[in-house]
Design a protein around this nucleic acid. Sequence first.
DNA 1: CCAGACGTTGTT
DNA 2: GTCTGG
DNA 3: CCAGACGTTGTT
DNA 4: GTCTGG
Length: 270
Amino acid sequence: MGVSANRKFAGSYAEDPMCGRIALYTPPSRLARLLDASLDEELESEGGPSWNVAPSQTMLALVEPRPDDSAASSEAAGRVLRAFRWGLVPYWAGDPSIGNRMINARAETVASKGAFSSALSRRRCLVVADGFYEWQRDPVNPKRKVPYYFVRADGLPLTLAGLWERWQPPDRPEALLLSCTVITTSAGPDIEFVHDRMPVVVEAPDFDRWLSRAERDPEAVLPLLRPAPAGTLRSHPVSSLVNSPRNDSPELIVEVEAPPPEEPVPTLFD
DNA sequence: CCAGACGTTGTT
DNA sequence: GTCTGG
DNA sequence: CCAGACGTTGTT
DNA sequence: GTCTGG
């Protein structure tokens, strides 16, 4: 058994696509086709369409299967689309709650952190998303946050640099938890007006290098962890309904009018 | 060497 | 497992 | 990331 | 303020 699951990939999907929080509503079969991957056997029972995937919930990611992996024995399958819990739980962890604090890894430091070192060498993945949300903080009133939705400008699904792990409870070796984290870097030109960080976007020509199990030298893959160049992403402001992880509907990605910036509050010294 | 931690974000 | 700190 | 809770004892 | 849960 795999991963924590909380929704079913069944029934209605958005027909067309038009970190953190992401959206993942394109059906797995279509994602696999678009990304030239095969579907993990257990995928159909894991997760479901969501416009508001939060840490601790199920994400989908591409991995290169091991040669002995059952998913690899089926046909071409250079890569497999598989379900993971968002929040990395290293296999040496005594308690899976560590995953709550491992939802991102910084590209600048990932190679020098004990918690990520092993996964960076041997367990890299590409987190698949239709889009992701970033919150713009009002410089006058930092408590006021305006959410923006980001997608690829070319309409393809996002493929975000990630790491994954397998974890087994000490007392229940049969209960396998697959988990993952999203690598972040400084914001590129498409994003910096909202936020100073962004998830690392990996482009199709780099998929094989990032996913390669044979490549165990972090130095060989770190150059891929760079901000997305201008024009990669497009974005629009969305409703603050997305703020609550309890809300989940297509309405969350609908463009709304950006609220005007808050007027500076006069102070005694103005 | 051993022991102990293993993370990022944003905010002040 | 792997890194940092002592 | 944001929202929401923030606790222990003992009893069923 | 800080931690947990989604």
